[in-house]
Amino acid sequence: MSRYLTREEYFDAWARWHGGTDPRASAVVRGWLTIAHTLARPLAGLSPTVVTAVGLLVALSAVGPAAAGGWWLVPAGLLVGLSGLLDSLDGALAIAGGRASRRGYVLDSAVDRLTEVGYALALWLAGAPVWLAVAFGALCWFPDYLRARAGQAGVDETGAISVWERPTRVAMTGMTLGGAGVVSALGLDVVVVVAGTAVGAVLGLVGTAQLGRQLRRALG
């Protein structure tokens, strides 16, 4: 088995797999990846693909409690958070464990998009208007689509980390659902869900604008 990378080596390897984007530039992403790297070390024998599949199942399992509403929104939020952690864990197992591959990278990206569909669906079932939930989900997808298309156009670097990266999307969904569950006894759950989804959509617009500006310069 390959030597398990140190945290700094893991950051460097992660950057190479993500178009040269340095995770140290964002405290949120740096902290998120540090947790994943730490948890992955004792689990180095696990298959990253298995963890990816479990993460998808956990994300989709949040839909049921979200539909139930009320106090059930708390476990829905916790499941979303766990799914995001598993998503980072599979990457840490693959990259830091020396098992990263192009096939695994594409699979992980595809699963990320499917989990974000689950997040948008959970927010809608919890009370967000359908148009707002769709906007939230689309803005989860769009930045990564832009990066992929720019890569096909020959852009080697995907730009600096924006305010709307994967950890932020997971955190906004999880905290919105969990927070709504906490205040559900006061009848404020739908208000919190709508507000949280709207804030996420605004962050998505800002993050997309940041990325678009960077890619415009890179594309000339």
Rank of each mutant, 00 (worst) to 15 (best):
L85T: 15
A92S: 15
L79F: 13
L85F: 11
A96L: 10
P75H: 13
P75G: 09
L82E: 11
L78W: 08
L93S: 04
G98E: 11
G97S: 10
I95M: 09
L78T: 10
V80C: 05
G77W: 04
L93C: 07
L78M: 14
G81T: 10
D87E: 11
A96Q: 07
G91P: 11
S88C: 13
L93E: 00
R99Y: 07
L85Q: 06
G98M: 07
L78P: 08
L89Y: 01
V80Y: 07
L82M: 15
R102Q: 14
L79G: 08
R99A: 09
L89K: 03
R99H: 15
S88D: 03
G81L: 15
R102P: 09
G98N: 03
L78F: 11
S83R: 12
G98H: 08
A76N: 06
L78H: 08
P75Y: 07
L79V: 12
G91F: 04
S88K: 03
D87N: 14
P75T: 05
G84M: 08
G77D: 13
L86G: 03
S83M: 10
L85E: 11
G104P: 08
A100E: 15
L78Y: 06
G91N: 12
L86I: 01
D87Y: 15
D87L: 09
S101H: 05
G84Y: 00
S101A: 12
L89A: 00
L79Y: 11
D90C: 08
G81H: 14
L82G: 14
A94H: 02
G104Y: 04
I95T: 02
R99W: 12
R103N: 13
S88R: 03
G81Y: 10
L79I: 07
G91T: 10
G91C: 07
R102Y: 13
G77H: 02
L86V: 05
A92E: 03
R99P: 03
G77F: 01
A76I: 01
P75I: 11
V80S: 09
L79A: 13
G104N: 14
L79S: 01
G77N: 12
P75V: 10
G91L: 06
R102I: 04
G77V: 12
S88Q: 06
R99S: 00
P75K: 11
L89W: 01
L85W: 04
G98Q: 08
A92N: 02
L86P: 09
A76G: 09
S101V: 13
A94P: 02
L93W: 01
G97A: 01
R103H: 14
L89H: 00
L89G: 01
L82T: 15
D90N: 04
D87C: 04
G84F: 05
D87K: 03
A94L: 02
A92Q: 03
A76S: 11
V80W: 02
S83D: 01
A92Y: 03
P75S: 06
G77Q: 14
V80G: 08
A100P: 13
G81F: 14
G84K: 13
R102L: 14
G84Q: 08
A92H: 03
S101Y: 12
S88E: 02
G84H: 10
S88N: 13
S88M: 13
D87H: 15
S101D: 05
L82D: 05
I95S: 01
R102D: 15
D90S: 11
G97L: 11
D87S: 10
R102H: 14
A96K: 12
A94E: 00
P75N: 03
G97E: 01
L85I: 14
G104F: 14
A96M: 10
L93D: 00
A94T: 08
G81R: 06
L78N: 07
